[in-house]
Nucleic acid binder design. Structure first.
Lengths: 162, 162
DNA sequence: GAATACCCGAACGATTTAGTCAACTAAAAG
DNA sequence: CTTTTAGTTGACTAAATCGTTCGGGTATTC
């Protein structure tokens, strides 16, 4: 599971579709306008999202994209995996030829890490995110199951850029 | 928190130092040989690891790298942050100028995701990984039920710049 | 048939990745 | 002291990825 801005753009766009898709398809132009993502980049992302069954397209005037599944069932992991092909960090390529003990130390390590991260991203759905987004200025409710350590920046600036 | 192969190489190399550092410094040539990572790439990575206080270098014959801190206190997050500069996925750049409601939807979203992932990576230490690595051919000892080390939070340098 | 909006692909600059090469310095061994 | 070992630094490179721009398509509606 790779974690880059690409997947984050995709999730942002899917959130936009979720929030604005109540009354008909959402155009990429509107998403581009609202989320400040280039139209052509959105086209590329939604091409993958469509081919992975995340969204459905409606062509012609009044067209756009709809969620192909209910927002309750679309997870962040789904979206990220749709646009971001997974990488293999193990030197053995996942094969069974890692004879040398040291050669594949990473194997189990990243399997464990990826499993944990993936399981978290799979537990968050688009509707979770949208629901969390509604209370403007409110606190983070659900996703804040972890305490920030002492020694965090005392400034009011939230920790966004990990 | 970006998750790429670069950070994984760094963690692998640090695991190697942890496992082979009992009897003196570990040379990059040895790590390169064992882990199949190019020597020059290791040089770059260990340059950053050294500047971030992860390892200490010993020059001359018999030299190499030692852990600068105890393996119990070095977390995966420390290593990844040392070699992989954090990225900012929020369009507003973390500033407070996101007036438009839609503009910064990603803000709280990724703050929550990053916080969770980071908190997990910070809960796993090098010694955890090495301990998990010892039972050859054994099953993956459950990495999920990790403990939060009580003495980790008030560490002198708590991996700042969230 | 014109306007809308999805669809497709080529190309691009910028950045990152992973690796190579060369020159240098500190320290140990002879 | 000289040689050898091994870390240190910097420049450089090929490849990939990122995000964007451009130019053309095709399906649908008015």
């Amino acid at each position: 599971m790779r974690l880059t801005t690409k997947g984050r753009f995709a999730v942002t766009a899917m959130m936009d579709v979720t929030m604005h898709g109540a009354r008909g398809p959402v155009t990429l132009a509107a998403i581009s306008e609202r989320q400040r993502i280039s139209l052509s980049y959105l086209e590329q992302l939604f091409g993958k999202l469509r081919r992975h069954g995340m969204v459905e397209s409606v062509r012609g005037p009044g067209g756009g994209y709809n969620l192909a599944r209910d927002a309750e069932t679309v997870t962040v992991a789904d979206v990220i995996l749709a646009v971001d092909e997974p990488i293999d960090a193990t030197q053995c390529g996942g094969r069974e030829n890692c004879l040398d003990d040291h050669r594949c130390m990473t194997h189990e390590l990243w399997a464990g890490l990826n499993a944990h991260i993936f399981s978290y991203l799979r537990s968050v759905t688009l509707s979770d995110l949208v629901r969390q987004q509604q209370p403007r200025g409110g606190e983070l409710a659900v996703l804040q199951d972890h305490r920030h350590p002492a020694g965090a920046a005392p400034s009011p600036e939230p920790a966004t850029a990990l």
